[in-house]
Every structure is written in structure tokens, then in C-alpha cells.
Amino acid sequence: MNAPLTPPLDAAGLAEAFQVFARASEELTQAYGGLQQQVGVLTERLDLLLEALPAGVVVLDNHGRVEQINKAASAMLGSALVGSDWQPFAARMLVASDTPGEWELASAEAECRVSISETALDRSGGRIVLLHDVTEAWRMRRAAARNERLAAMGEMVAGLAHQLRTPLASALLYTGHLANTQLAATQRADVAGRAVERLRHLERLIQDMLIFARGEALGREAFGICELIAELRHTIEPVAARGGVVFDTDCAAGTEQVFGNRKEIAAALTNLLENALQVLGEGGRVLLAADLDGEAVRFRVRDDGRGIEPAMQDRLFEPFFTTRADGTGLGLAIARGVARAHGGDIALWSEPGVGSEFTFSLPLIVQNEVARTEELAA
């Protein structure tokens, strides 16, 4: 049995239907207009918020082009950035600094450092790049490090006077003997040698003082960690062999690199190695090793000597504190200064009768920043 057919609408029904449709269309139009007004208000507020933010904001579309840039970002990067490709621009303008996660602006007239973070826009496929100006924080860190060095130098003035007076008095005494015409040639040569040795001690002390006072590592470059280990092996191995000490090296850092003053870092590690050799007798062992610890490299200098008493461990890094008669007491203080100037530090583990281990840590600045630069330029 067929279903009954729907009766056709008469003219009155059609008119009523059109009136209902017209009212619904008007309500939808009003609702859409209200939504547009709300969107306009929100957009205006968002624009005001972006302009008021102290951080730089760069909005990228799904092709990596700059859609929008706020006032703070314009001040950092320039206002003609909208519509350009972000990655080539960032690779050209952002230069890796000596601090992980911080970048220098190549176009800035004055020193300017920024940190960068990115957030993906899931639906549009774009990204928001935030640039935080950390210049003042960096300057404060640098000033604090300088003030710390100045404070340490103030504390060492009295010790410096004593350290200089003793070898100087000895040198004056020996050179005074040279005026004695009754001295035999062999005695004169012996006195002259002693005077020269004391003067060289003075020269070494003054040189260490200048390095400690400067504090900052200048002339930085990228160099391989294992390359430095190999270089130090060639330098130290003959010295260890003459003293009957077994010297080993081990590098588990692969091709990783650091960024810093190679000469000063090598000198700091050499100082740690020479200290280890001096406390060992024949048959002792010294190990120089390097391994990775997260985003840092650890250079470890370990010996199986007599160890260091706990009461003495806290004083080892004090300027002019030394347990050797011919020591300046600045070697470990300088080594710690070099490590801190590169964003790292030195730690000590020691147990009497077992041995000691100094850990010289540096951040893997180059590895992180090169990877970041390559990502920006991709």
C-alpha cells in the first residue's frame, strides 16, 4: 500500500514559510554580526597586548613567513620583516653567544642578547617565536663575576705583599753576593743561578696574578674535546714518564666540540695534571678523561695518591693557599676562574689514602648553538 502524498502548500502556507525563513536569516545575520564585532574587539585587544608585551613576538604562517611582528620585535629586528622568510633571516641575524640558549643580534648598534622560544600553532601549522631581551641580565652576570674577582683580589693584597717580598729579598741577597770580588767562579755561578731562579719565581707569580685579575677568557674558538685530550697527552706523557708515573687518557666525547679559549683551558687542565704528578711517587697513576654529562663535558683528572684532608679541601681554591714551598697558590684559583669564565666550574672529590679527582666542567656551547643555527637555516 502506497504512503499518502503530502498535500501541496497553498499560498498562505508558502507566505508563512518565507516569513519564518526571513526571520531565521535575519537572526543569523545579527548573530554573525555580533560574532564579527566580538572578533574585532578580541583582535584589537590582542594587538594592544602584543604591542604592550616587553618580549618580542613574531607570528609565522605555515610556510615559515612572518605574518605579524610586535613593537618590541620591530625594535630588535627591524620593521620590514613582515612577509619575509623567517629562517634565513634568523640564521643571518642571530649569532650564537658564549652562553647556552642566548644569542647576539648581529645588526644591533649596542650589545644586545636575546633568548628564543617557539610555540607551534596546531591548527594553522604556523608558529609563534618569542624573543626575550636578556642584555641587562647578562651585563649583571658579567659585573657580578668581575666584582667577585675584585673582592678576591682585595683579600689577597696582604698575601701578595708577602709572596713578592720573600723571593725578592732572596734575589737581592744573591745579587748582593755577586759584588764580592773574593768569590770563586764556581761560587759566583751558583749564586747567579739562585738569583735567576728567584727572579723567575717572581715572574711566574706576577704572570699568574695578571691571569687571575683578567678573569675573562678572550680569543674564543671552536675545538674538539678529544683533540685537546690528545694534545695534553703528548705534553704530559714525557713528564710523567720521567717521574715514573703511569699516565692514561680516555675520551668518550666523540666529535663533540666546545667554544672557548683553547690556550687557557689547556693551561688550566695542565695545572691540574701537574699538581697530580707532583703528589705521586714512582708507580703512581694519573688519568685524564673526558665524557659527556647532558649538555656539558666533564674533564676528569684523577690520581691514586695520598688524597687531601677534608679540612684542607675547602681552602684549595683560595688565592695564595698552597701546600708546596715553591708554589704560588694561584694555580687552582686560576683554573676555577677559567672554568667559570666559560660557564663551567671545578669540583673536587678526594679521600685520604685513596686519591683525588678534579672535575673541570664546561657547557657544550658549540654543539647546542650550531644545531640551533642549522635548524634556523634549514
Rank of each mutant, 00 (worst) to 15 (best):
A3E: 07
A3V: 06
P4G: 05
A11L: 10
Q19V: 06
S25M: 09
G34M: 11
Q37T: 13
Q37Y: 02
G40P: 02
L49T: 15
L50E: 14
A55H: 12
V58E: 05
V59W: 08
H63I: 06
Q68W: 05
I69Q: 10
A73H: 00
S74R: 15
A80N: 13
L81E: 05
V82A: 13
G83T: 01
P88C: 06
A90R: 06
A91M: 03
T99W: 12
E104C: 10
A108D: 10
E111I: 01
E111A: 08
V114R: 03
S117H: 05
S117E: 12
E118H: 06
G125N: 02
G126F: 06
G126E: 02
R127E: 11
D133P: 04
T135G: 03
T135R: 04
T135D: 04
W138C: 09
A144V: 14
A145G: 13
R146T: 09
R146C: 03
N147T: 14
A158P: 02
L160M: 13
L164T: 10
R165L: 13
A171G: 07
L172H: 09
L172D: 10
N180Y: 04
N180L: 14
Q182S: 14
L183C: 05
A185K: 07
A185W: 01
T186C: 10
T186Y: 03
R188D: 01
A192L: 15
A192F: 12
R194L: 12
E203K: 07
I206V: 15
Q207T: 14
D208E: 14
M209P: 00
R214Y: 11
E216G: 08
C226I: 02
I229D: 00
I229T: 10
R233Q: 09
R233I: 00
R233D: 05
H234V: 08
I236E: 01
A240P: 02
R242E: 10
V246M: 05
F247K: 01
D250T: 08
Q257Y: 01
G260R: 03
A268D: 09
L269W: 00
Q278E: 07
R285D: 03
R285A: 11
V286S: 04
A289N: 07
D293Q: 15
V301K: 04
G305N: 06
G307Y: 05
D314I: 14
R315Q: 12
R315E: 09
F317I: 11
P319R: 08
G327V: 11
T328V: 02
T328Q: 04
A333G: 10
A333Q: 11
G343S: 08
E351S: 10
P352G: 02
G353V: 04
G355A: 08
V370C: 01
R372S: 10
L376I: 01
